[in-house]
């Protein structure tokens, strides 16, 4: 993957904000890749979990904020249980979703569920997906 490096106040602010929101030390990551190896959604992702955290370390907010990966993470915490540094990637993903433009479009909104489907889905999944993917 090719990235253009930047360094400045915005980058430092982005990193600090992710760390503050997630409570995780993103610089503890040494890119072993175990998080991505065990991730059940990896095959659908444009950026793998370890790539997300690497881009966060470099403060490349734009690349992270436009990644589809943010809306593919199932918060299954497999990465957390495998990470040798104890990093909880699901928290990093949630922190990034938190700072997305609050006026932006919902990544997944109620309009995308048909009334028939809504009838058969367990309540918990409706509460869950809107908490994760809509504003």
């Amino acid at each position: 993957m090719r990235v253009k490096l930047k360094s400045g106040r915005d980058q430092r602010k982005f990193i600090a904000r992710i760390e503050e929101l997630s409570g995780e030390n993103v610089f503890a990551c040494y890119q072993c890749g175990r998080c991505s190896a065990g991730c059940p959604m990896a095959s659908e992702m444009d950026l793998l979990p370890n790539q997300i955290i690497r881009l966060v370390q470099m403060g490349l907010d734009e690349d992270v904020l436009r990644s589809k990966t943010l809306f593919l993470c199932a918060s299954c915490f497999t990465c957390e249980s495998r990470c040798p540094k104890g990093i909880d990637m699901a928290r990093v993903m949630e922190a990034v979703r938190h700072i997305l433009d609050p006026k932006g479009k919902d990544a997944f909104g109620p309009g995308e569920i048909s009334p028939e489907l809504a009838q058969e889905l367990p309540q918990q999944v409706l509460v869950s997906i809107f908490r994760k993917f809509s504003k």
Partner: peptide
């Protein structure tokens, strides 16, 4: 697949 079963 958890809640992803709704979105994907």
């Amino acid at each position: 697949g958890s809640y992803i079963s709704v979105s994907l």
